[in-house]
Every structure is written in C-alpha cells, then in structure tokens.
Amino acid sequence: MIDAELTLRPLHKVDGDPVFDEPWQAEALAIADILVSKGMFSARTWSEALGKALKDAQSVGAVDNQQTYYNCVLSALEQLVAEHSDIDQQTMATKRQDWEHAYLSTPHGQPVRLK
C-alpha cells in the first residue's frame, strides 16, 4: 500500500533526515562499494541491479522512504554476490539463521558470537 501522506509530503521536508537510519544500512552500502572497488562486479552492474530493485519495490507500492531504499540495496547486493561468487542465496539464509540463533541464545549484555 502506498503511504500517500509520505509520498506527497514536500521533498524538502526530508532534506534534513539522517543519511543512515540504522548501522546495517551503512554496512550494506560499504560492502557494495568495496565489492565494486575490488572488481567483483562493475559500478554499472551495481546501478542496474539497484535500479531494478527500486523499480520492483515501487511497482508493488512500497513506501517511498529510506527503509525501502536500503532494503533494495540489500536485495541487490545479495543477488549480485550470489551471481558473482560461490556464495548462494541458501548459504546466506542459513548463515542469517545462525546469527538469529546466536542472538537468541546469548544472554543479554554478553557479546554475540557464532558458534
């Protein structure tokens, strides 16, 4: 569903918003830029994948905000890593579950580590 109020609010109202809402967003952009620098995929390939992810999000009515933008960054990054390395989507999903389990099984205040 499109958030009409957010979509229609004047653009300058979001001018002062922070560039990152959460640390993972900065990490996602950092990883993408580093992988372009290292030549895993080109800047053009990256912009095309991100552009497609943004277009797909818009076509299903995702809210036009930073959360959506960075979710698209994440999806494009996962897709390109799967295409350009031997790390597939299933491996990523399994590792994500491992991290979730590590967080849930670590007492609050203790450092979270993968076993």
């Binding site: 990490e27 992988l35 960075y70 890593v81 390395s85 790390i87 491996t91 994500r96 967080y103 849930l104």
Partner: peptide, 30 residues
C-alpha cells in the same frame, strides 16, 4: 527479542560473515 537485530541487519551480518570468511572483504575496510 528486544536485542534481536532486524531481519535486514541479520542478513547483512550473514553476508559480511560469509564474505570475510572467503577473504572477499576485510572487516577493517568496512
């Protein structure tokens, strides 16, 4: 659950772990 990161944060953690393990990125560079 209060200290469980969001799904997106967990996915980035997973991706970073895998890329670091494979020697494809250096965590210090990130």
């Amino acid at each position: 659950h209060s200290h469980l990161p969001s799904d997106s944060a967990l996915r980035i953690k997973a991706l970073e772990t895998l890329l670091v393990d494979k020697g494809l990125v250096n965590p210090d560079t990130i």
